[in-house]
Amino acid sequence: MSRRLHIEIFRYNPLDPDSVPHMQSFYVNEYDSMTLFIALNIIREEQDPSVQFDFCCRAGICGSCGMVINGRPGLACHTQTRDLPEHIVLHPLPVFKLIGDLSVDTGTWFRAVGKKIEAWVHSDDTAFDVRAEEARMENALAEQIFELDRCVECGCCIAACGTARMREDFLGAATINRVARFYIDPRDERSDDDYYDVIGNDQGVFGCMGLLGCEDVCPKKIPLQDQLGIMRRMLALNSVKGILPKGILDKMKHKGCCHEKH
């Protein structure tokens, strides 16, 4: 009853002048609890050693193996073949620069946007005192921060975003989520205005059109939808500060959201 999987892989080696983008078919016998990690390695080791793809932790924690699986971006190591039809079509993630076949350069991309949003806790490192106790924090807040910090930068949410595909300079959901992570962190001393300078534009939160592809593909179930909404509301209200009465703004800002600085 075990199936014979038909795996169709996008092939293109940009470094080889003779190579043209095409789809290549491979056939692999399925077995129990087989993941795409196993299937692809069988292909590479037994059928065509030149196929390029990326795996690292093979446990769904590092984010290396993002690819488009039957139309949807996802983590290949995390995908069981039994959840897929017999015919599996694999493409590299769009938006990112292709390295070859299924392999794309997410590292450079994420570092570039990280630089843009100055993705670090802005505080005074020289103020650290070795003898002092650590600054206290509520456990619930720590958990909230980690919830956003769990992103593995696999790039699936970027590849699943229509805006990102139309506009090269769109920062994408993962990046806005990252800003949100610093926003709720009391150790980060940036003000609302500072955050506005970073993502208060059409490359940032206001570029998002609410397509929610990001939300629906994120393999780590990062609360992207909610973070996009909260950041957008915060910055939109920030932009009309001085136009609307402050009382109303404050009320709206805090509505249904637990994300004020503590």
Partner: peptide, 18 residues
């Protein structure tokens, strides 16, 4: 073209609705 290709690839309601 990019968006069309994308919505075709994704088969994702919210994307198509846009």
């Amino acid at each position: 073209v990019a968006f069309r290709a994308h919505s075709k690839m994704m088969h994702h309601t919210d994307t198509t609705l846009w």
